[in-house]
């Protein structure tokens, strides 16, 4: 009895609300076709994949590709590089936008501040190819402005982009140059949310601007900082591999090659699809664990989860 009335009310519901399901359909189909179907294709990580047989018909090989990967020095090196670059990026790239936001906050609202902000947000909107082009141009050994400067100071020119020890500083530096300004927006918004009366009462109490920054602004935006930090940790493996592809070369692989660039070369350049997919699966699983852990920590710590 109850069941049949539920069915009939369901029919009623679809009669009345069919339109929203129609509106939803393209989105669901797109996600199935372009994001979920590839997940099904991930099984080639456990198969001896051949393009001719296709995903389903290729024979299973168990964990062989993973064995191959973990026996390969190149893959181990890529994992190591991924974590080192991510960690350095976190260490230097994370505080920079916070400091920038605090500094912007100390300038009075107005044309001057606005134009400074306009400038520092700009690189975010520039394509990575252009960023790479600019980096290559500026660090060029013969005509690059950095080397011109070094020569004027009496040093030998440095072939920056061919030297492994220079790759990480250049890569991380250009990342900060591109994103730090834009990332400061989140913190500026948080600062804007701090009640002005806190500052007013501090002024009455005779606090200096330096003290207010440390004792009021920073503690007030701490929740935002923590949340952003957690997001950052969740996305730790997402080193900007596209920029790496644009900037590295065989002579810098030893410090520059990360998991995704490894996958790119193995799979998309070398056509070793199954091994590359196995590396991708490893990457995705580690990333998933990191994201979930970050979300759980965030929920415990701040009582808000990120989604």
């Amino acid at each position: 009895m109850k069941n049949s009335s539920r069915t009939s009310s369901l029919i009623q519901h679809f009669k009345r609300e069919w339109q929203i399901y129609l509106l939803l359909a393209p989105l669901v189909i797109w996600f199935l076709l372009f994001l979920y179907k590839p997940m099904y294709g991930l099984q080639i990580a456990f198969k001896d994949f051949s393009l001719f047989k296709g995903v389903d018909a290729s024979p299973w090989v168990g964990l062989e590709h993973f064995r191959t990967l973990f026996d390969s020095d190149m893959f181990i090196r890529a994992i190591k590089n991924t974590f080192i670059i991510s960690f350095l990026n976190l260490l230097i790239g994370f505080p920079t936008p916070i400091i920038l936001a605090l500094m912007f906050n100390e300038i009075a609202q107005g044309k001057f501040r606005k134009s400074l902000q306009t400038i520092v947000y700009l690189p975010h909107f520039i394509s990575l190819v252009i960023i790479a082009g600019i980096v290559i141009n500026i660090f060029s050994p013969s005509t690059g402005v950095v080397n011109l400067l070094l020569q004027k100071l009496g040093f030998e020119p440095i072939y920056f982009l061919t030297q492994p020890e220079w790759f990480r500083p250049i890569f991380i530096g250009s990342g900060i140059w591109q994103e730090a300004g834009f990332q400061s927006i989140v913190y500026l918004a948080a600062i804007a949310g701090v009640s002005p009366s806190l500052y007013e009462s501090a002024v009455v109490d005779g606090a200096s601007r330096w003290q207010m920054m440390w004792k009021i602004t920073l503690p007030c935006i701490l929740p935002t900082i923590i949340i952003m930090l957690i997001i950052r940790i969740g996305n730790l493996l997402e080193v900007g591999f596209e920029l790496i592809i644009l900037l590295y070369q065989p002579s810098t692989f030893q410090t520059a090659d990360v998991i995704n660039t490894f996958i790119y070369r193995q799979g998309l350049v070398g056509n070793q699809y199954d091994v590359a997919a196995a590396a991708g699966l490893f990457n995705a699983v580690v990333a998933f664990v990191l994201v979930m852990a970050a979300n759980t920590i965030s929920r415990r710590l701040t009582r808000t989860s990120l989604w």
Binding site: M39, I263, Y264, G267, L268, G280, A287, F288
Partner: peptide, 8 residues
């Protein structure tokens, strides 16, 4: 949180 990656 999870995507299949470049190859798939």
């Amino acid at each position: 949180w999870f995507n299949a990656g470049l190859i798939p």
